[in-house]
Design a protein around this nucleic acid. Structure first.
Lengths: 129, 129
DNA sequence: CTTTATGCAAAGCGTTTGCATACTT
DNA sequence: AAGTATGCAAACGCTTTGCATAAAG
């Protein structure tokens, strides 16, 4: 566990905004100005393999990283792109239902919401008035 | 509506395997051998804007296109990568629950399952024996 | 004849990889 | 000294775009 790797894990844990690799890079650069993007990708991937992080593949091109353990769901704002956790109880029964309906052996499910966050709704409202 | 555009829409409707842009390109090329990938992307995007197709952004790098109307869910096989529909009733109540929990105005939700399809389970089983 | 779409090639963007150098242990 | 990680730059895969030509209305 090198200095860089520790700093990367720390940066993702500190943010609860589900940063992209690039955002992590910018954040860590404040402490380690010479860290490269390649190192960021390599180590985030490694931390995912070790189960310390999760990689999210919601729409919008970039993958995002999440340090929160356990299953939970996400919302993405279509206007500002931010991703937040949804505090609702996971639905374990849906995997069984899907397995029954498809014949697959279902191992995960992802539930993602899309909409507009409070801040962006306000921004639109005040621009209109 | 050009010949190319009609052929593209047709190709996606004909497949229920949720083809990628590249797969659509290969399929349409059989009828229109000179059609370019650029044209494929431009027209699929256009058809999405017109609401005739939907673009799926499940993990795995490539986007996929879906001609089936109405809300429904998907499973993706981790081994062969195929994407299939899940015949289960949509859960309209979850959007309200998410809106309540987050303060977002929620307009869509996507529920995706990940697992292993029947064929791949058999393949693994027979390789093992 | 004006507008819109096409094929082609180049550029874009996020991510991955090869390689020589620099850490770790 | 052996093994692993780093920075840098180049390569990669998918998608988008600029442009001259061709098709559509």
């Amino acid at each position: 566990m090198t200095r860089q790797r520790r700093a990367l894990l720390d940066a993702v844990q500190r943010e609860d905004r589900h940063p992209t690799a690039d955002e992590v890079h910018r954040a860590v650069r404040r402490r380690l100005p010479r860290i490269s993007l390649g190192t960021v990708y390599r180590n985030l991937e490694l931390l995912v393999e070790q189960g310390l992080l999760r990689k999210l593949d919601l729409g919008g091109g970039q993958r995002r990283f999440d340090a929160k353990p356990g299953p939970h769901y996400h919302v993405r704002c279509t206007r500002c792109g931010r991703v937040e956790d949804v505090r609702m109880r996971p639905l374990p029964a849906v995997e069984r239902a899907a397995a029954r309906a498809t014949g697959y052996e279902v191992t995960e499910h992802h539930l993602e919401f899309v909409g507009r966050c409070g801040e962006c709704r306000n921004a639109v409202r005040s621009a209109r008035d």
